[in-house]
Design a protein around this nucleic acid. Structure first.
Lengths: 155, 155
DNA sequence: TGACGATAGGTGTTCAAACACCTACATTGC
DNA sequence: GCAATGTAGGTGTTTGAACACCTATCGTCA
C-alpha cells in the first residue's frame, strides 16, 4: 500500500509539474521527520535549534565557535543566534567568552552538562532514524542521499 | 563539483549511519527549498501557511472546508489554524460562515481577492520549482518522488 | 428526554522567530 | 595616525507559533 502525497493531502488537481510534485514531496517528508525529532528533543527540554548548536559545538571540542560560524553551519536558518545562545547559556549548556585576539568575536563552547545532554540523545535519535528510514535498503538510501545532494547544487 | 552535506555544514565526524545521513540531507534540502519559496511569498505579503491554505481552498472551490480538515491537509503542522484564518479573513482572503446543519462547524471559503492572489503566484512558484529542480532529469525526479513516498510509509 | 462523551472551534498566555537597527572593534588606505 | 569601510555581536519591537484550557453543539443511549 503506497500513500502518495496526492492522497495524503487529498489534493484534487494533479501536480502541474514533476518538479512541483518533487518539491512538495520533499517538504512534506522533511516535515514529518522533523516533527518526530522535535518531539523527542522536547522531552529533554531542547528545541531543534538548541540541539543543532550542541552537536556543532560538540564536534568543535574545546576550540569554541563564534556566532556567525555557528549560524552558517546550522541545518536550518536561524537569524537570532544571539538570543538562542543566551537561552542556552542560561540553561548551563554553553559558555561564551570574548576572544582576546579579536575582541569583536565571542566564542561559544559546550559545557560538560551540555555535552552530557547531547550524548544522552545519541541513542534515541539514532533509534528514531532507524524507525523513520530503516525500511529502505542501503542502496535506496544512497540513491536518496545522492539525489538530495544533486538538488542542493542549484538551490 | 558536488557539495556533500558534510562539506556543506563542515561537520568533522562522519555520519553514524546511512539513515542519519539521509535524514539530515532531507531536512537540509527541504529547508533550502522552503527558504526560497517563503521569500517569494513574502513579496506578496503571504506566509507559507497562508499560501498553503489558499491553495487548498482554491482546490475546494465553492464548497468550503472546515478548520480541522484544513489543518489535516496542510503540508506542514499548524496548530493554531483559528488565528491563521483570523488574519486571512481580516486581509480579505477568506470568509468564514457557520454551517447551518451542524452549527459546530465553520466553513472557510476563498474570496475572489484570495483567488486572484494565489493565481498570480502560480507562475512565479512554478518558475522557482524549475530553477530549484529543473536540473534533474524526469527519471531522477520520479525516483526521488518514489523514494520520498516510500519514506513516508513509516513515519 | 436528558445526561454523557465526543467533536468543532475559540481564547489566554507564554515564548521564540524575524526584522531592522545599533554599538564596538578591526582593517585598509590615504 | 586617522578616517572610512567592513565585520562581529547585541538590542528593541512586532508578530506568529505553541500549548493548555474553555465553550458550544451534536450524537447516542440509558
Amino acid at each position: 500500500m503506497t500513500t502518495s502525497l496526492r492522497d495524503d493531502i487529498q489534493q484534487r488537481a494533479a501536480f502541474t509539474s514533476l518538479e512541483q510534485e518533487a518539491s512538495l514531496n520533499l517538504i512534506r517528508t522533511a516535515t514529518q521527520l522533523t516533527d518526530s525529532i522535535d518531539l523527542l528533543l522536547k522531552q529533554k527540554g531542547l528545541g531543534p535549534g538548541q540541539y543543532n548548536v550542541l552537536r556543532i559545538l560538540r564536534g568543535a571540542e574545546a576550540d569554541g565557535i563564534c556566532r556567525n560560524d555557528l549560524r552558517d553551519r546550522m541545518l536550518t536558518r536561524m537569524p537570532d543566534m544571539t538570543r538562542l545562545l543566551d537561552r542556552m547559556e542560561e540553561a548551563g549548556l554553553v559558555v561564551r567568552t570574548r576572544d582576546v585576539d579579536d575582541r569583536r568575536m565571542v566564542l561559544a563552547r559546550i559545557t560538560p552538562a551540555g555535552r552530557k545532554l547531547v550524548d544522552e540523545l545519541d541513542g534515541p535519535t539514532e533509534e528514531l532514524h532507524q524507525r523513520q528510514l530503516g525500511h529502505l535498503t542501503d542502496e535506496q538510501l544512497r540513491t536518496l542521499i545522492d539525489l538530495l545532494t544533486l538538488v542542493r547544487q542549484r538551490v
